[in-house]
Design a protein around this nucleic acid. Sequence first.
DNA 1: GCCATTTCTTGTCATTTGGCAAGTTGTTTT
DNA 2: AAAACAACTTGCCAAATGACAAGAAATGGC
Lengths: 194, 194
Amino acid sequence: MAKESLVHFISHHLAADHQAAASELAQHFQERLLSKGEYFMKEGQASNEYLFLEEGCIRAYTTDTEGNDVTTGFYIKNKVVFEVSSFFNRTRSKENLQALIDCKGYCLTYLQLKELFHAVTAYREFGRAMLVKGFVALKERTLSLINETAEERYAGLISANPEIFQYAPLKHIASYLGITDSSLSRIRKEFQKK
Amino acid sequence: MAKESLVHFISHHLAADHQAAASELAQHFQERLLSKGEYFMKEGQASNEYLFLEEGCIRAYTTDTEGNDVTTGFYIKNKVVFEVSSFFNRTRSKENLQALIDCKGYCLTYLQLKELFHAVTAYREFGRAMLVKGFVALKERTLSLINETAEERYAGLISANPEIFQYAPLKHIASYLGITDSSLSRIRKEFQKK
DNA sequence: GCCATTTCTTGTCATTTGGCAAGTTGTTTT
DNA sequence: AAAACAACTTGCCAAATGACAAGAAATGGC
């Protein structure tokens, strides 16, 4: 069956007594392709879509007050991609979501999500799980910015998500880690000695 | 009426067509007092409660790998206090929530929340709004750790939440800002010259 | 009121990181 | 193939921050 990865992903986030709902929920998602460089969302827009990424890699970034491009996240396959604030608060996004390579996924519009959320118990569970998961992941990232060194953060990222290094240029990874690209280059140099 | 602040808070987070539900929802909350120094939650426990803080100030902190105490958040009056991960995933918390001064609030247990979440449309909306709000606030904080200087983060905190400085010792604020207490002391010295 | 503890500040010095610019390599465009 | 551009590295120096220790100030307990 198509959407197999999506069904599996949804079912993984549902309690035992709602397993049956997984493939029903997956049916509401629509296939979505993005080619390398294409934007899933641009800043200034209100985000209307929620995406499960089956293949590919997407970078989230924003522009800081001095005009620099700052990477706020990377999404790889089998992850859900959305910008919380603009999606749920229906506001214009300050972030961009851009495909680093060709991507394939399945998406849901805000209206579909809203309806499913109120109508289907299993979907409430799934939707909340996605929010909680993103929140918890961000908490860990924030903590790492506070109590790990740049080198530790680098080591952590390369061990947890090596595929990102295949697709993203180092300057994107540097801003995600909270350092400059020169510093990252030096850290890599030190790191490979070990 | 008692719980006025809570009713007001809830109604502020509900869409126009659900306003009537605010005081009904507030009825499920139970008054909760904490004295200075008391823990609302300790690490190692699974969090069972969700708190609306009417008066007081609570600090969230965790212990890093070297045994240092790191402040992960401050909660002031008219905010909702909970630890996402342990509350929603029903796992043991790595964080502590401790009253910095005497506090008064209203709380809801996980079971109550779960029931209300499925039974009451307005509560789903409220619950999701709380999650989204916390998530968005954390995103901003994370970004500030990446592209603001320590002094800018200090200035931001003191202008947005001056009351925290009344209740928390500087070392707690320092770890929240991602710097040492000596650095914070020096930053304050520089800052007051301006 | 006095002692003990915590909080806060300050000094010195080392380390990390940034800013800037140059140089190399690799990739895309024409 | 040449030119233009982006990516990555490296050198040099400055700025920010940390580590550690000492001391002053404030607070809490008895």
